[in-house]
Amino acid sequence: MTDTSSYPAGPRPVGIVLRADTTSALAASTYGLLAQLERLGLQDAVRFTEISSGTGAARSFCLPDSLAAQWAPGLDTIGLAEKLQLDTLGNSEDLEREILLAMLLSPAAFEFPSHAELASAIRIRRNIVVAARKTALEFHTTEVNRPEDCWTYSEDDGFTVRPGHALIPALQKATQPEASGKLYSFSCYRATEYVILLAIAQELETCNPPLLAALQQRWERRAIMSGKFHDVFLREYGTMEQPLPPKYYVPGDRLWFRNPDEHSSDVSGYEGSWVFYLGGGLFTNFWKREQPYTLTAKCLELFHWRHATYTDKAGELRINESIVEAGVKASSANPAEAARILELMLRMREPKGVYESGGCIDTSREYPRWVCPGTADMVLPPA
């Protein structure tokens, strides 16, 4: 029987769904997940339910309602690590715990054809967080560059890896200054693609080497970018019709904060901000990686873009970052003003082209597709 006595009105956790062709395969996947939960000390933090399926067998796993209400009221996962005293920065198992618990709290099902795919998905999310923490970029709205020893560029193919240079270290060298000794210029969107590709490649190195080899060959010929990258490598959960709760995030999620101000959103590079959720209530700051954003800080920054917009001598719209920083500092020091801004910014974003009363919170998040042999659904297009 479902425990509803202590669960408030609002979104309910759906969690993780495992599907299989046979009941014995489902039993094996279930055993794998329960063993993982026990290893992490979370064996009492899950309830599971049989799901009727037209073909095969399926079972859902989520947090019990009483724990969900206690640990993440309203499916607010921002404070999950703090409530459970998880050291997600210094302890990789604590990061795994936060990822798995947040997935078990999801209001939209995370579906997997095996426990092996779920385990890979968790490791990829962990890889994303680790790589995103190390990523630091040179901010520039019009110029881009890469390490010339292992990358080359053409207008038709984008940045490709030079033959003889492995994809994983090439991606690390482009995004992590410890690997290269300098910072390179990216858009924040392209940087998220590199971090995701790196995290996937690191998992493929052990779970599916042939797919890693195919990625290597593809990136030596032509990069997969933008909309094609999303279609090939990512799933999206949450929709405009069924938005995710504004404070529900899983470590490793890619998401967009929209600039809800029409005028300042016309500045190149300031239409919004692509980030990863790092867990522990923090979001990436690729320009100052030692200062990751809280949700409040990110909302205040986007809000003050409207106050820092100007037209330069060439007639181009620009943003004065010093004015943004001063505005954020002043708002942070005034609790009433900060609360007013947050009330505006924590609203769901409006559809493309609409600037009336929406905020900066997107209705969806993105995460990588399946990667294991036999179930991987990353189909690389021909170069």
Rank of each mutant, 00 (worst) to 15 (best):
D3H: 12
T192S: 02
A339C: 07
P177H: 09
T23D: 14
P8F: 03
A136R: 15
P251W: 03
Q36A: 11
T296N: 13
Q291L: 11
V328C: 06
Q217A: 10
A170Q: 06
G252M: 06
T30C: 06
A308R: 02
L26P: 01
D3W: 15
S60T: 02
A179R: 09
I78Q: 10
A376W: 00
A121W: 02
G227V: 14
I200L: 05
I200E: 05
S322Q: 14
D377P: 03
P351W: 02
T363G: 11
E93M: 09
L167F: 09
S180Y: 05
Y237V: 14
H165E: 12
A45D: 14
P292L: 00
R123F: 04
R340M: 09
L278K: 03
K134S: 12
G10F: 05
P8W: 09
R306M: 04
K173M: 12
V371G: 01
F257I: 08
A57K: 04
L137V: 04
L317K: 12
P163T: 08
A376Y: 00
H230T: 13
I78D: 07
R254Y: 09
Q202H: 04
A166C: 07
E203S: 11
R340V: 06
G281A: 07
S6G: 13
L101N: 00
T363W: 13
